[in-house]
């Protein structure tokens, strides 16, 4: 039953997220709002995090890659879309994505090191 309760919790918060998205026309999709709502709920709750919920989340997140495969196959089906501008799209996608990785990682690691030095 613990597994079912955990899955029900996740679905319930996804549903709350979808409702919030639909009713308030928020720019974030239901599951992302659901993640935010569940975070707030768990932080405000006085009880320890339910180990069954933690296990279910871990299990689901360990196969997150698999869950993207159907949408990924959709790329192959839609590959004709990039045909008209494949060169600028491919080059800018690769450079821009790598730059984003570099900037985000370097800024965070640099600032965290500075913070540690200041606190030390």
């Amino acid at each position: 039953m613990a597994l079912l309760q955990s899955v029900a919790t996740l679905l319930l918060f996804q549903l709350f997220g979808e409702l919030l998205h639909t009713l308030l026309h928020l720019p974030l999709p239901g599951p992302v709002l659901g993640m935010g709502l569940l975070t707030v709920w768990l932080l405000r709750s006085k009880q320890e995090l339910n180990p069954a919920l933690a296990r279910t989340a871990e299990g689901l997140l360990s196969i997150l890659g698999l869950l993207f495969v159907p949408a990924g196959v959709g790329i192959v089906a839609n590959l004709a879309l990039i045909r008209t501008a494949w060169l600028p799209l491919t080059v800018s996608l690769v450079i821009s994505t790598l730059l984003t990785l570099v900037v985000t990682a370097a800024v965070l690691q640099g600032l965290l090191k500075r913070q540690q030095r200041v606190r030390a």
């Binding site: 599951p31 993640m35 975070t39 997140l61 196969i63």
Partner: peptide, 24 residues
């Protein structure tokens, strides 16, 4: 293909919600 694969695709919703747990 998606008629079958959608069952996995559907799980993306609860999996995204589950990101709250490592966050907490």
């Amino acid at each position: 293909y998606f008629a079958g694969a959608q069952f996995l695709h559907f799980l993306l919703g609860p999996a995204t919600v589950a990101l709250a747990i490592p966050l907490v």
